[in-house]
Design a protein around this nucleic acid. Structure first.
Lengths: 312, 312
DNA sequence: CGCGCATATCCTCCTCCTGAGCAAAAGTCG
DNA sequence: CGACTTTTGCTCAGGAGGAGGATATGCGCG
């Protein structure tokens, strides 16, 4: 029996709903996962076309902005569940991960697809005021796992900062991988022992999908700073508060209001329309729209502050 | 005849030699290209292992630092030369590009492999003092090609700045792609007309290898700013001047000497040894080495200035 | 209508990073 | 020794970014 090479495509379709970052998930036999499909060179000229095709089939939602994340080719990574994609355990699966952004987060018309919050899978990535923050436990557990190992402790320090200072939001993958190695996430047990792992930090996903999601989160967070991608998550018109809330949702921490305004305005990424809306109880807010500048895919991003810990 | 799916691996192995950025090239029937090979799932557990394996065979050089760049899956991209890798024109080739860094740039023991300067392929990317700078022609040609097209002109402005102001060195790929579309590089003619294109800007490479190289250059340049990768290109001990020259070689422009020192020293990326060397005619320079901090793959990078045009 | 309330919006102040350049130090070469 | 070259230390000004005070403009309510 010849082992064939199979290319699987995975998509992290992200959006912001009611101020919460969400990702489109699909219910599978083994649990929740990302939309994915097999790339068939006969049918599709490019990865992106294939992606759009089967995401639409699996979720009945069209894709807008799409960007490649990473290609995972290691044998053993998908080990226990390889058969999910190929139907043939002997095939060698290489999976290409994609990040897609949606501005509307329409409810998918299929039962099996649903928007789920990032925080379900990565509770420790959300440091906004009033959210749970289980980060101290994690670093504690990591440190005792690392014991005296110099290298590991450096990695922990780099990935988590002091969890309150020096936290770099774009290192979501570093953090997940450390936790995986330390067996603080269920996948680590499942992949090694073959049995369902205990519920540890956050909900698990099938295969290596949570790793892909971590990659996507990190990439998106990083990209906010140097490309105007945030507007791919916004409608045509929005208040500055809404824009800021989206940014905060993605970043996972609160930022200074007045400075944020100054930042986006002096960068000329947005322009004021002449309409205002009254969504809250206070003064009506001006509606803004993205400028032509921010439409350019190569334009600069937002000047965003770093997380400096919370007042807790 | 069934079309099989084939995964090709390409490596951009970069180094700095005598203050010049170089890349390891392999002489092929159609011209110079990057080392590449076919990924065989039977033989190799991971892409990286496969990579190390065949690079060693093709060039007799071992790989050290390796990082994935991008996966190119579009049909038609490699069109005229698809047979190079597979030997069977009907196969569908997907290629995964990698970036590798070498600190020593040993001369490969094989005839067909050689280190070649980036500037051979991308003369317009080098803005250091005393180098040719054909950037003004290029933007001129691009603008007349773009004619009045709003979108294209924005892209040009974003990619090239004013070629003297607002130039962002990490946009090497954007620049190459624009030039490709405008048929300012030989590959554009070759890929479309099937015949060897005229010599235009820089030397052409086989297949889409120059595109991959552009991707690598952009990635490496960007990464300098947020990861300590520059030390992967340096030996164990080096003077600050040597370090700076490497950085300048990669970035493609000169930077302020005193500020550079201040930057690396206050970032604690290097520490002084107690030896000095006298390489030039002036005062002997202290030798430095990378600190443990800079060994951490997740540590921060160098604070580097932006290109502000040359005094010409 | 006047008042408290909740936001939005404007503006100021202060600090630190960064760009730029002067000047001294420590060698070589003739 | 004096001219020259390169390293190294230091200063200073401008600007970006962080924090927060002060107004503006809507609401609901008595």
């Amino acid at each position: 029996m010849e082992r064939r090479l199979v290319i699987g495509l995975n998509v992290v379709l992200a959006a912001v709903r009611d101020g919460e970052p969400v990702v489109l998930c699909v219910k599978r036999p083994g649990g929740w996962g990302l939309p994915f499909g097999r790339f068939d060179p006969e049918d599709h000229r490019t990865f992106e076309l294939a992606l759009r095709d089967f995401v639409e089939r699996q979720t009945a939602l069209p894709l807008e902005y799409v960007e490649q994340l990473y290609t995972f080719g290691d044998r053993g990574r998908e080990a226990p569940r390889a058969s999910l994609v190929s139907g043939d355990e002997a095939d060698r699966i290489v999976s290409v991960g994609y990040l897609a952004l949606s501005s509307d987060a329409l409810t998918p018309s299929l039962e099996s697809a649903a928007w789920r919050r990032w925080s379900t899978f990565f509770p420790w990535e959300d440091h906004r005021e009033g959210k749970i923050r289980s980060c101290a436990d994690i670093t504690g557990q990591l440190r005792s796992w690392a014991a005296g190992d110099e290298t590991l402790n450096t990695r922990i320090a780099m990935a988590f900062g002091d969890c309150d200072a020096g936290w770099e939001e774009e290192r979501a993958l570093d953090r997940y991988e450390l936790m995986y190695e330390a067996r603080l996430v269920a996948e680590a047990h499942r992949d090694r022992d073959g049995v369902e792992g205990p519920l540890l930090h956050g909900e698990a996903m099938i295969s290596d999908h949570r790793r892909i999601l971590a990659t996507a989160i990190g990439r998106l967070r990083g990209k906010l700073r140097y490309r105007p991608v945030i507007f791919k998550l916004m409608g045509d018109e929005f208040t500055l508060r809404a824009l800021q809330e989206s940014v905060e949702a993605i970043l996972g921490f609160d930022i200074h209001k007045q400075n944020f305004r100054r930042g986006v305005e002096t960068a000329h990424l947005v322009e004021k329309t002449d309409t205002t809306v009254q969504a809250t109880g206070g003064r009506p807010a001006a509606l803004y729209r993205a400028t032509a500048l921010s439409e350019a895919p190569t334009a600069a991003g937002l000047a965003l502050p770093r997380f400096r810990g919370s007042a807790t």
